[in-house]
Amino acid sequence: MARIAIIFLTFVCVFGGATFVKSIEEDFIRLPLTSLHSRSRRKADVVDPNAKKVNLWNDRNLQYGINITVGTPPQPFILHLDTGSADVWVPSVNGDCPYLCKAVNKYDSSKSSTYKEIPGKTFTLGYETGGLSGSVAEETISFAGLEIKNQVIGIGENQDTDLNSYPLDGIIGFPWSGATSQTDPKSTILGNLHKNGHIKKRFACLKLHQVNEQPGGELLLGGCDVEAEHWGRVYGNGYWEIPIDKVEAFGTDGNSLDSICGPGSSVPDCRATFDTGAAVIGGPSYLIDPIASKLGASKYDENINDYIVDCDDQTLGNLEFTFGKFKVVMTPGDYLSKDGNTCTLGFARLDDLSALLLGDPFLRKVTLLMNQEKDEAGLAKSNIDKPVARPT
Rank of each mutant, 00 (worst) to 15 (best):
T69R: 06
T124A: 09
G126R: 02
N67L: 06
D162W: 10
T72V: 12
P167G: 03
D306H: 11
A380C: 02
G216L: 03
L125C: 11
P243L: 08
F362S: 08
G222N: 02
P215K: 00
Y115C: 02
K52T: 01
P284Q: 10
E229H: 08
A86V: 11
L220W: 12
N383P: 14
I155V: 14
D184K: 14
T344S: 13
Q314G: 07
G84S: 08
I78N: 15
T19M: 00
V21E: 01
N383W: 15
G236K: 02
T276M: 09
S85I: 07
D269L: 15
G16I: 14
V211Y: 15
D27F: 07
G216N: 07
N94Q: 06
G134I: 06
K22A: 07
C13L: 05
G238T: 11
I384S: 12
E117T: 11
I244E: 06
P263R: 02
Q372C: 01
G65I: 04
K325E: 11
F274I: 15
G197H: 09
A44P: 00
G359W: 14
K365Y: 05
G324Y: 04
I4T: 12
S181Y: 10
P290Y: 10
L221P: 01
R202N: 01
F250A: 00
E25S: 05
T342G: 03
V388C: 01
G95M: 08
G262Q: 09
Y300V: 07
P73T: 11
G262T: 10
L206T: 15
I242V: 14
K294V: 10
L220Y: 09
R60C: 08
Q182K: 02
C261K: 05
S256I: 13
G282M: 07
S256C: 07
I78Q: 14
S38Y: 06
L219Y: 05
P185K: 05
L56I: 13
N61W: 15
A348C: 00
K121R: 13
E147M: 04
P167Y: 06
S354P: 00
E376N: 12
D312M: 12
S35G: 11
P290T: 11
K365I: 08
W240P: 06
K52L: 05
L81N: 01
V280Q: 06
A5G: 03
G173R: 00
N55S: 09
N255K: 15
G282L: 04
D289T: 14
I155K: 08
K102Q: 12
G232H: 08
T114N: 09
K111A: 10
L33E: 14
N158S: 14
A204L: 13
C205H: 14
D225M: 01
C311T: 07
D96F: 15
A389H: 10
I24K: 14
K106Y: 00
A389I: 04
V388L: 10
L345W: 01
D360T: 15
D48V: 03
D184F: 13
R349N: 06
L379I: 13
C101Q: 00
D301R: 05
A249I: 08
I291R: 06
C205F: 15
K111T: 09
D27K: 12
M330K: 00
V46I: 13
A137G: 03
G131I: 00
S135Y: 12
T276P: 03
G130P: 02
V234L: 04
G84N: 06
A2P: 03
